[in-house]
Structures are given as C-alpha cells and as structure tokens.
C-alpha cells in the first residue's frame, strides 16, 4: 500500500513538472506574440504629421521649381572674374633640390604657384569652375577631340591647371634637357618622358575634382588636371576671368569652384558674389544658380584670404 502511494506521488510530481514547463512554454509563446514588443516612447501622430508634411512640401519652393525646371529649355552663359580680397601673399620660390642648372631660370628658382594673384587687379589665376551634373549638354560643350599640349620646361609644368574631356588626347612634352616622369594621380598613368620627347595620353575617366600631376624625379613639380564628361568647365586666366557657355537654362545648376589651395573640403573655394544675391554659395564652394534662357550671367567673385589654406 505504501509503495503504491509513493508511486502516485512521484507520478504527480512528474506531471507537475511537465505541466509547469508546458505552461511556461505556452505563456512564453503568448508573450513573444504580443507583449514582448518594444513600445516605449511616443509615436508620430498622423494628423500632426500631415500638417507638418504639407508645410515642408510647400516650404521647399526651390524643390517645386526644380520639378518644373526639369523640363527647362534654352541655354545660357555664365562668366565672371575672381578677385582676391586683401593683400595677396608673395609666393616663395620652388624648393629646387637638384639639377639646379636646368631647373632654375637665371639661377633663380621660379616662384611657387599655389596661389597666383595678378598684382594690381588682384585677379586670381587657376581657379577651376565646373558644372557638377549637367542634365543636358549643348553641342558646343560635347566632348572635345582636339589634342592638347602639356609641356614642361625648367622643371615646371607650363600649364599649371588643365581641363579636358573624356576621350581627349594630351601630348605630354618634355622641353627640358633632363628626363621627367609624369604621374597623373588617380589615372594610373605614370610614364617617363625623355628629354625633348613627348608621350601621348588619352583621358579615360572623368573625375569630381582635379587630379594632381607630379614628377617623382623633381618632386616639387606640380600641376592639376580635371577630366570631365562634358565641356562645362573653365579655368580662370591671368585676369581671373572664366566663361562657361551654353549651360542648360531654366533649371537649377550647381557649379563647383575649386582651387588647389581652397580651404573648403575637397579644396573647394568659397567666395562671395555681392552683386548677385540669387547665387547661393555652400561651404564646400558650390554655387547654386538658375539662369534664364539666353542670359549671360556676369559674376564678380570676391574671394577672402581665409578661403585659401596657406
């Protein structure tokens, strides 16, 4: 009798344990089903969200213009001049460390070209301006086919900043009585150009910023090359002047202003255009503007000294 009693007791316990486990399992599944959710903190309320969204939608006036302007027609021209605000710095000479007889002019190392400002007019040379993304391209700005000469003399690249289109060919010449190698960073091109020789180079891919061009033999030699898909770019000349013709009109455009010593990220150059309030500058040196068809927009860009990193 006692044995029987013990048995049933054990059995009860067994069933008790399994029953307990089972209850746990079921409640757990229930728990994970609904109550285990992360429901802390407020959730956006629909009515209010709609009110805010409507306002944000109307507030982006530029955006709706953009929608209409995606079908913009006609062409316009943008041109202007870069002027230095302040006293331009004097450039120290290049640090010529070897072959002084070839690499100096009358025994003098030429001045560096990190920032070339014409005395008097204070015009800034070698500022690059290009259209970032062209929605359409005028025939006049289609990729070019003419060959460009890129020469070096006195251990200097004679063209300090050169703009090109993809597919365009460059004749890299060496007018010095010594060997140079021309290393176009980012392009994979690094070739020795023998004294008096020339090597052709064809632009393969475009870039968002100008690539540096160096010579490993004469490490002070520096130039910049901007390969683009279209011809919407310009490099300011000794008068600080630039012109980009036949850009798409009637739609928002974004130009990048770039200078090798620009202080903004990616060597962007931030200037001001006091005479043109519709021209918006970002702190990366990007200029947002919308041009009317057949408009010729003339800008005077004033660049403060602190826009340069020197």
């Amino acid at each position: 009798m006692e044995y029987r009693w013990r048995l049933t007791n054990k059995m009860k316990r067994l069933f008790g344990i399994s029953g307990f486990l089972w209850m746990l399992a079921v409640s757990l599944s229930g728990l994970s089903g609904c109550s285990g959710r992360a429901d802390m903190g407020p959730v956006a309320d629909a009515a209010n969200v709609k009110a805010i969204r409507d306002v944000l939608a109307t507030s982006k006036g530029a955006g709706s213009e953009q929608a209409a302007a995606a079908t913009g027609t006609g062409w316009a021209t943008i041109k202007g001049q870069f002027v230095f605000d302040g006293d331009p710095p004097t450039m120290p000479p290049y640090n010529v460390t070897k072959e002084a007889e070839i690499c100096t002019i009358n025994g003098q190392a030429p001045p560096q070209e990190m920032l070339v400002v014409t005395p008097g007019s204070k015009a800034i040379k070698n500022v690059v301006v290009f259209l970032r993304d062209a929605s359409r391209v005028n025939d006049s700005a289609k990729p070019k086919t003419d060959r460009v000469e890129f020469d070096q003399k006195h251990c200097l690249f004679l063209t300090h900043v050169v703009g090109l289109t993809v597919g365009q060919a460059l004749d890299i010449k060496n007018s010095d009585n010594t060997g140079h190698n021309t290393n176009i960073l980012g392009s994979g091109f690094n070739q020795l150009i023998p004294a008096g020789g020339a090597i052709p180079y064809k632009v393969q891919k475009d870039a968002q910023v100008p690539n540096k061009v160096t010579c490993s033999i004469h490490p002070w030699m520096t130039a910049y090359m901007l390969p683009r898909k279209d011809g919407y770019f310009a490099v300011s000349d000794a008068d600080g002047k630039f012109e980009i013709a036949n850009v798409p009109a009637g739609e928002p455009l974004e130009f990048q202003v770039w200078h090798e010593s620009g202080a903004a990220p990616g060597n962007g150059l931030v200037g001001t255009t006091p005479d043109a309030p519709d021209v918006k500058w970002s702190n990366r040196g990007r200029v947002a503007v919308t041009l009317k068809p057949d408009d010729v927009k003339e800008l005077k860009v004033v660049v403060p000294a602190k826009a340069f990193r020197l």
């Binding site: 903190g41 959730v43 956006a44 309320d45 629909a46 709609k50 805010i52 969204r53 944000l56």
Partner: peptide
C-alpha cells in the same frame, strides 16, 4: 511628441 511628428512628416 513634436520630434516624433517631425520625423514622421
């Protein structure tokens, strides 16, 4: 709540 609404919008 305002932040949740702005983000929602």
């Amino acid at each position: 709540q305002a932040i949740a609404n702005i983000l929602g919008a």
